[in-house]
Design a protein around this nucleic acid. Structure first.
Ligand code: SF4
Ligand code: SF4
Lengths: 164, 164
DNA sequence: TCTAATACGGATATCCACTATCCTTATGGA
DNA sequence: TCCATAAGGATAGTGGATATCCGTATTAGA
């Protein structure tokens, strides 16, 4: 079980957009070039973010994307679910209904309510999502600045600004 | 992102094996029939559990599987990781190294240490695993008995016992 | 007005992990 | 000896993720 690579791309793109001046737009071309990923495919991830209302796109030359909300109002969970979906990682196929001992009346028992196994798995899924929800895009910036060498950070900022 | 169906199978099988008398073995055939899943494929999941040291298999007629440890010593995480692996759900492909602003010296920067994005994702992954680790197989039985109609529970118990 | 750059989305092809089946071998009980 | 079983290698089939291409609508700028 692995998250889509688009999740990583989306998070990196959001972290870049978070550093943009509020009136600027950054094109898919620039984001793709910056991260070394195929532009057409990255476009799908950005469209997903757009459909989720996290970023806003504008057409025409000098078009592109910007964040649709303040960075303090966008969580990691928002980004992850925008591209990965909000369905639980554990899906139960009603395996209990296949019990040869079950009578007709017992069938669809799983439909009536999940059992303890499903509840535990869903609770773990919830713990994962709660953890993602607890971190906002605004928490990221300071932490990221400490990770990246200062001069690279500065040069990247100028590179992005020149294209915004 | 979805867990393998084998995870569900493995958990259900463990919950059945947990109700077995300690000296009994239950064959793959019975577990497959009980859950309505292909025997050959379920076998792979049971082998994974066996390799992880959670269950023990015995050859020959009246062979099969039993739990290798007391139910209080087997967590949901043990079962999930046995079949799903213990690799993080978030894999980072070193996307930062593709930054066109990065000099040769900056490359492999991701290798030197994960950035804030990876840390957040891995922390969420850890929260998921911690949640799974907090529930033991022994916690399951009472809860499961409450979920399932009493007579179906009894009939299933007899069905399994007749084959153990 | 015209042109070019862009977002958007449908269609399609490719790749790969999961799913599923088949077969052989080794082991142990009757 | 004979048979049922676990164990595991080999091999398809399936579906979602990955990736590319193209057509359309929109808008900035010449
Ligand atoms: S509800 Fe419980 S018993 Fe039924 S299929 Fe889901 S996990 Fe299995
Ligand atoms: S370490 Fe951070 S910057 Fe580097 S690839 Fe992973 S998530 Fe991206």
């Amino acid at each position: 079980m692995q998250l889509k690579s688009q999740v990583e791309w989306a998070l990196h793109c959001c972290s870049i957009l978070a550093g943009l001046p509020p009136e600027g737009y950054l094109a898919t071309r620039a984001l793709a070039e910056l991260h070394g990923v195929p532009k057409e495919y990255l476009s799908k991830a950005l469209q997903a973010l757009s459909n989720a209302g996290l970023i806003t796109g504008t057409l025409g030359p000098s078009g592109g994307y910007r964040l649709a909300r303040p960075t303090s109002d966008i969580t990691f969970l928002d980004v992850v679910e925008a591209v990965e979906g909000s369905a639980s990682t554990f899906v139960c196929t009603g395996i209990r209904d296949n019990n040869p001992c079950a009578t007709r009346a017992d069938i669809d028992d799983c439909d009536r309510g999940p059992c303890a196994i499903a509840r535990v798995m869903w609770q773990a899924d919830k713990a994962w999502r709660d953890s993602l929800r607890s971190v906002r895009l605004s928490d990221l910036r300071d932490s990221l600045e400490r990770d990246i060498p200062a001069d690279l950070w500065r040069r990247t900022g100028e590179w992005v600004l020149a294209r915004a």
